[in-house]
Design a protein around this nucleic acid. Sequence first.
DNA 1: CAATTGACCGGATTGTAATTATGGTCATTT
DNA 2: AAATGACCATAATTACAATCCGGTCAATTG
Lengths: 195, 195
Amino acid sequence: MESKKPVDRRMQIIEAAGKSFAMFGYKATTMELVSKIAGVGKGTIYTFFATKEDLFGEIIRQLAGELRSLAERMIDRERNFFANLAAVLHELLLFREKHELMVKLSQEIRDIGTPMAKDGIAKLEQAIQGFIQHEVELAVKKGELRDSVDPALTAFIMLKLYVAIGVEWSKSHPLTREEIADYFTNLLSSGVAAR
Amino acid sequence: MESKKPVDRRMQIIEAAGKSFAMFGYKATTMELVSKIAGVGKGTIYTFFATKEDLFGEIIRQLAGELRSLAERMIDRERNFFANLAAVLHELLLFREKHELMVKLSQEIRDIGTPMAKDGIAKLEQAIQGFIQHEVELAVKKGELRDSVDPALTAFIMLKLYVAIGVEWSKSHPLTREEIADYFTNLLSSGVAAR
DNA sequence: CAATTGACCGGATTGTAATTATGGTCATTT
DNA sequence: AAATGACCATAATTACAATCCGGTCAATTG
């Protein structure tokens, strides 16, 4: 029971901050606004978070957690590595397009390049990459992937590749989810050289 | 003999513009400055180019030509497709880092996001991608690559992937040219699935 | 007395009006 | 006929006052 009043306050603040960052982005969220939404005095926020960046960091940390657990839920140990990978990456793309905070931060980066917003998105991508890296390591152990691969680089590549196909390429050449997954899986698993 | 005075003027202007765009970027290059460097009156530029964008377009077109011929020279028909591809992409990365105009435009995009600079770089990348696509088509015909690949998408992917490894990943994990080429070739030719 | 608050501070940001710089034109010159 | 640069309208920059906001802390509360 380490909870009671202080934890309640902390929660109120985190929830208020989450809403505000999602609605207005990093820059347009003021500490005063957060305090109003949370129904606490501005000074109270500083009892729990040293700076606005800290508060934002906590929100990002929670979102990264959500992201990881979402990815976790997409994994079906009955399926092979590539099927799981495509499913996870697809889900992450959807999340990116649907989750208000991610949408807002991406927009803010495009429009005004807020460094903290970049930082936040980078942390989220890092979380995803870390998750994939872990899966790659498992797949190597299980013998599904060659043990010559560098898990970190491979995870990095997989994420880049999926985003490149699923977002950038799809802009000019619409592809269905299946087409993306097929192309992606095929390229990664066996390459393009003639057999 | 369609050359004489007019062509000479045109050349003077193009050379001056090339220098100015490379030294000051798109935005900070003024038509007056170009005319001064070229040693002609400002109005004369408009005899040959309708707008500043046109003039810039011509400079980019020439650079794209240089880029293509550089790529062409890297191709050795004795070597296999992947060796040539890695050589070409490596050379293009060097070019990107060394050619003043490309460096300046990239910096301008980072710093102030000049749309015309973005446009110029995009055209250059398009030229590169087109070149690779052509090589992919040849390789498919020669039976070096599977004929199930989509040449345009494959060229797009190859460029993305090489830049991702050679620029982004190398920032945090320095790799030699050979390591990049090896990883890249290996991944593209045969994938990462256990054999 | 520990927790909470909001008035307050100084530096950053923004609105805006005046000034300057620049792309493009065209009457004049060569 | 080709070339030029003064000129124009608008875009970009500057200067600066007004406003905003992150963070502090003395006063207040329960």
